[in-house]
Amino acid sequence: MEKIMHKPMATTGLPAIGWSRRLLSWEFFLLLMTAVVFGLNSLASPYFLDPWNLSDATFNFVEKAVVALPLAMLIICREIDLSVASIIALASAAMGFAAQAGAGTELIVLAGLGVGLLCGLVNGLLVTRFEIPSIVVTIGTMSLFRGLTYILLGDTVLKDYPESFAYLGQGYVYWVFSFEFVLFGVLALLFYGLLHRTNFGRRTYAIGNNPTAAFYSGINVARHRLILFVLVGLVSGLASVLLTSRLGSTRPTIALGWELSIITMVVLGGVSIMGGAGTILGVVIAVFLMGLVTFGLGLLNVPGIVMSIIIGAMLIGVIATPVLLKKFKGRKSAP
């Protein structure tokens, strides 16, 4: 299968490259766009450059960004998970019932992580054991997990969380740096190392480029994909912990529609939707770019529906641009 490359540089091991090629990379383009959006936001609103306002802006995207990290690896491996937002909702429901039963913060967090891991395991087993396409499986589990959340909660809103639980989504480590933001930074470094500095990451790229060749070279493709699905589910559970803590409540509509935003972060970051290409650095830059765009629009009182349109347009544009460029080059080189 022919893959769409979002940038001219190789991504399988981040080899040493010259500055000229770095300046032509997708990451550099994203960094440039982030600087432009930052400048426009600072001119558009006098409140934008306030450190506490910028800190508050991170709360709007950190939980999504956390899920984007393992999802990027899954997409590089030529799979996808559309159920991440529903996993967040179901994990939040589990934490809500645990809190109602009198559980402490540690048990509540374990409940959220455990449900997320279990949901990821269900997705992974359905894909690897029954060889059902992941897009079909996760569309089904997206409805299944969200439906279970509605059945469990109905119209109920669960709020009886212990005070110590609030720190995970509302607390600050130092000055304007929230616990959520610092945790995202740590996870970004860990996933960068996992993808770009380990054999596991090299196997991820190998499977994404050619799963058949990877299999015959001795890679256990099914097990590798299962691990990635479980990892996505586990981190979705972690995102649920952060989001539920920040909101201080659980309701069936929590994280509704987040799939689009998370996938947009990944694809905007240069991860090929066809697999085999992409970097964690690109995803991290794309996270900040999207965060600045939505925060700037919010300061200008732009309605949420308009933001959704912009995010959808960004997703279509990023996917369509390489295809159009490839067709244009093909026509130009044709006799």
Rank of each mutant, 00 (worst) to 15 (best):
A16I: 11
F295K: 09
H196E: 12
P15A: 02
Y172K: 15
H224T: 14
S20Y: 05
T156D: 12
L24A: 13
Y167H: 11
A57W: 12
R22N: 06
A91Q: 04
L260G: 12
L238D: 06
S164K: 12
F165N: 02
M33A: 12
I219E: 08
G104L: 10
M307V: 08
A277S: 15
S55L: 03
I310P: 07
V127N: 13
T11Y: 10
I88L: 15
F229K: 11
D56C: 03
R331T: 07
E131N: 15
V241L: 14
G296A: 05
S134V: 06
I305W: 00
V115C: 00
M9Y: 05
A206C: 13
L71P: 10
Y172T: 12
I75R: 01
G185A: 02
F59E: 08
F38H: 11
L152T: 05
V67G: 01
K159H: 07
V318R: 03
T212S: 09
I132G: 11
I87A: 05
G317P: 00
I311P: 00
V176T: 15
V37S: 05
C119P: 00
L325R: 15
M265K: 13
T12K: 13
N123D: 14
L194W: 01
L242R: 01
A166K: 12
H6M: 15
G39V: 02
T141G: 12
L238S: 02
L228F: 01
L107G: 00
A206M: 14
V318H: 01
R203A: 13
E180N: 13
T279L: 10
L195K: 11
A65S: 15
F28T: 12
G218M: 08
S55F: 02
E63W: 15
L82S: 04
T204N: 02
M265C: 06
V284F: 14
N220G: 08
P322G: 09
G298N: 15
L107W: 11
I132K: 04
F59A: 12
R246P: 05
L31E: 05
L40M: 07
T198V: 04
R331P: 03
Y161A: 09
K327A: 10
A57E: 07
V176C: 09
L168G: 02
D50F: 08
V235E: 07
Y216W: 11
T141W: 09
M290I: 15
A320N: 08
P211V: 00
L315S: 10
T141L: 04
I4V: 15
R225M: 06
L125T: 03
L292D: 04
L153Q: 04
R22K: 13
L126V: 09
L71V: 11
A286Y: 00
A334G: 04
P303K: 00
T279D: 01
L121Y: 05
V173M: 14
G185M: 04
